[in-house]
Simulated scan of single mutants.
Amino acid sequence: MYIASYMSPSPVTVGPEESIPAVHRLLQEHKFRHLPVVAADKTLVGMVTDRDLRSAFPSTVLCESVRQAALTALAETPVSSIMSTRVTVLTPASTLDDALFLLDRERVGALPVVDASRRVVGVFSVRDLLRAYKELFGVGERGSALVAVFDDGQPHPLTRIARALEEHDVTFTRVIRTEHEGRARIYLRVKTFNIRAVQTALQAIGFAPELNLPPESSGEGSENSGGTGSGLVI
């Protein structure tokens, strides 16, 4: 999946000559944490964050006359003096995996998205990433729950799982296979809250549940649970 479908397009930007207080007000007005800094032709020249801006303001512990003098000087200081010029970027063709890797590596909350001419066409944030993966994995889908079983190591696991669930009139919408600490797991998002019935059906064909429901649990969630609570088994 590509970030073009999830990025914030046509983002608010500022020029490098904008004063630090003006950029700070803009950030507060829009409740942003990151702003791309662009040249007149919209090409990226830097990135400024709310942390950069807060750090630029004089401390409140200074005496009033000194602080006012610093604020007066700050009003004439361009944002280019505090922006980051070494900026990692994404393109509209970057994948969600690309974005996850770069956001984690750079330890930032957002990255600018640029076209082939390095013009800013969007911003992609951690919030956008979470929204994308929430949709990708069906988190919060009404009437669904997540079930995890251990792969039994036999051929054609998905075919056997699909057949077993079909026999019990259960539909699954997502499937992921992972390996952790030497054991393979299969995660299924199923369109039912009767998790115990799903586990029983899969155990009958050799798939052990990663987590057994406690005896006192019904294994069923309410219609309004949205796939959480007792309806979520991971």
Rank of each mutant, 00 (worst) to 15 (best):
M1P: 08
M1F: 05
M1W: 06
I3T: 01
I3M: 02
S5E: 14
Y6K: 04
V12L: 15
G15C: 15
G15K: 09
E17R: 12
E18N: 13
I20S: 07
P21W: 10
V23Q: 02
F32S: 09
H34S: 00
H34F: 05
P36H: 12
V37K: 00
D41Q: 01
D41F: 00
D41L: 00
K42M: 13
T43D: 00
T49C: 08
S55D: 15
F57V: 06
S59F: 06
T60R: 14
V61I: 13
V61Q: 14
S65Y: 04
Q68Y: 09
A69H: 13
A73K: 10
A75L: 10
A75W: 09
A75K: 13
A75C: 12
T77P: 03
T77Y: 07
P78C: 12
P78L: 13
P78Y: 12
P78S: 14
V79R: 05
I82W: 07
T85C: 14
T85N: 13
V87Y: 01
V87K: 00
V89M: 04
L90K: 02
L90W: 05
P92M: 09
P92T: 08
A93P: 03
S94G: 04
S94A: 12
S94I: 06
T95Y: 15
D98L: 10
D98Y: 12
D98Q: 08
D98R: 08
D98E: 11
A99W: 06
L100M: 15
L100P: 06
F101V: 10
F101K: 14
L103T: 10
D104A: 14
R105N: 10
E106K: 12
R107L: 07
R107T: 14
V108K: 04
G109F: 04
A110E: 04
A110R: 03
A110L: 07
P112L: 05
S117V: 09
V120G: 02
V121T: 12
V126I: 04
R127P: 00
R127D: 09
R127F: 02
R127I: 11
D128N: 14
R131C: 00
E135R: 14
F137E: 07
G138H: 07
G138A: 07
G138K: 05
E141Q: 12
E141W: 04
R142H: 08
R142T: 06
G143D: 10
S144F: 05
A145D: 05
A148V: 15
A148R: 07
A148M: 12
D151T: 06
D151F: 00
D152V: 05
P155I: 03
H156W: 13
L158P: 03
T159P: 03
R160K: 10
R160A: 01
L165G: 01
L165S: 03
L165V: 03
E166D: 10
H168W: 04
V170I: 12
F172L: 06
T173F: 03
R174A: 01
V175K: 07
I176K: 11
R177H: 13
T178H: 06
H180C: 06
H180G: 06
H180A: 10
R185M: 10
I186G: 04
K191Y: 04
T192C: 02
N194D: 15
I195T: 06
Q199H: 15
Q199C: 11
T200L: 09
A201Q: 09
A201D: 08
A204N: 08
E210G: 14
P214Q: 09
P215I: 08
S218V: 04
S218K: 08
G221L: 00
E223W: 09
T228M: 08
T228E: 12
G229D: 03
S230M: 09
G231R: 01
I234V: 15
